[in-house]
Design a protein around this nucleic acid. Structure first.
Lengths: 204, 204
DNA sequence: AAAATAATCCCCTAAAAAGGGGATATTAAT
DNA sequence: ATTAATATCCCCTTTTTAGGGGATTATTTT
């Protein structure tokens, strides 16, 4: 018997998963949560084998939730649920301990497969990507420091280095350094490319 | 009796909608389609009152599908289904004839409300947006000429005016003009803001 | 305590973009 | 035929970025 917790803020998705699993005899949905906090509370009070985690949750991201679950409930196995548009988070979810990765466009069989694989201690990655737009292998996102993220967002808001420096109470030279580091980390050589990648990956 | 067609490439969402509607006596899901082509075929052969349309479909966008349906089956009322991330498409869906707009995070009651409103000939817009990011009222996108779109894309690809000029076999000055016009039309004053808006609105 | 990382500041030069004017063919619409 | 829109090209100046070096404090991590 596999006990499932669904964590997603979309009732439609919750219903979808539940309805796909309702006729499975060895699988039971023991709980649902629409945010990370409720999910953690539920896990404290109930035995769960597999948690389906949406990437976008209202409080903290599924990525962070995944990490928290791994730390506090190492026996619970996480399967990330994402839309195609969010596929770039695969690697980060797996880094944070997810044992499976399902696109929300997955079929029933794929979902059952994932549960079966993961409950047996294996990995399941659903990567049957239909390449509607980008066939790029999709480089992993570089790690950004707190300051770099701040600067990146201010750049994307249209502020110049001078204005950013004023806002952050630092020298223009400092902002300039962060900016150069951003270009380096993203392996681009101008602002246009930088912002494009940032927006496409929801770093905004 | 309201007959519903669900068009979405996510089985989970289809199941979710179906399962939320299964206990409604006056509502029946008469069909589902995972792409726009199948949806049109179904509409030709069946009587449908309301079509739930996902924004992102594998073949053509829900926006275009909405228009097609309005043209070929004016009696069918469309309700757009989107994730929060895709909320920027609201206005375009409505322009193309959608009578309702639901976020996939909507509750059962909201979905039933939408069906009831729309089947009575009214509009339903679910805009209970929890403002995680942008509370902006969303300006209408400026009209871009063919050339401006080309230049915009090349800018976003990280090319300089010089490189773009070479690619388009025109003078750098021309590219510069287009670029200035782009800044003017989008009411921004640098590349970062320009690309941010462009990517967020799928002009890429 | 030592080492790595992050954040800060500094120098220099060249390239690119932005802001402000224009003008002139070509094409499309009325 | 006249207007309007598009695409093209030109001048100017100033600001901003990019590219190439560095260096010095904090703060974490090991």
């Amino acid at each position: 018997m596999t006990r499932i917790l669904i964590v997603d803020d979309h009732p439609l998705v919750i219903e979808g998963v539940k309805s796909l699993l309702v006729d499975q005899e060895d699988i039971i949905v023991v709980g649902v949560a629409t945010n990370a906090f409720d999910a953690m509370v539920f896990l404290k009070e109930n035995q769960v084998d597999i948690a389906f985690l949406d990437i976008n949750l209202p409080d903290i991201s599924g990525i962070d939730l995944c990490k928290k679950i791994k730390e506090e409930f190492p026996d619970v196995k996480s399967i990330a649920l994402s839309t195609f548009a969010e596929r770039s988070y695969i690697s980060r979810m797996v880094q944070n301990g997810a044992m499976g990765y399902l696109l929300k466009s997955s079929s029933k069989d794929e979902i059952l497969d994932a549960i079966s694989q993961v409950s047996q201690g294996g990995y399941y990655l659903n990567l049957n990507i239909k390449l509607p737009n980008q066939p790029e292998p999709h480089k992993p996102l570089p790690f950004l420091t707190r300051r770099e993220k701040e600067v990146l967002i201010l750049i994307s808001d249209g502020f110049t280095n001078h204005q950013i420096a004023e806002k952050l109470f630092v020298s223009v030279l400092t902002v300039d350094s962060h900016r150069k580091n951003l270009l380096m980390k993203f392996e681009v050589n101008n602002t246009a490319s930088l912002i494009k990648i940032a927006v496409q990956n929801d770093l905004i």
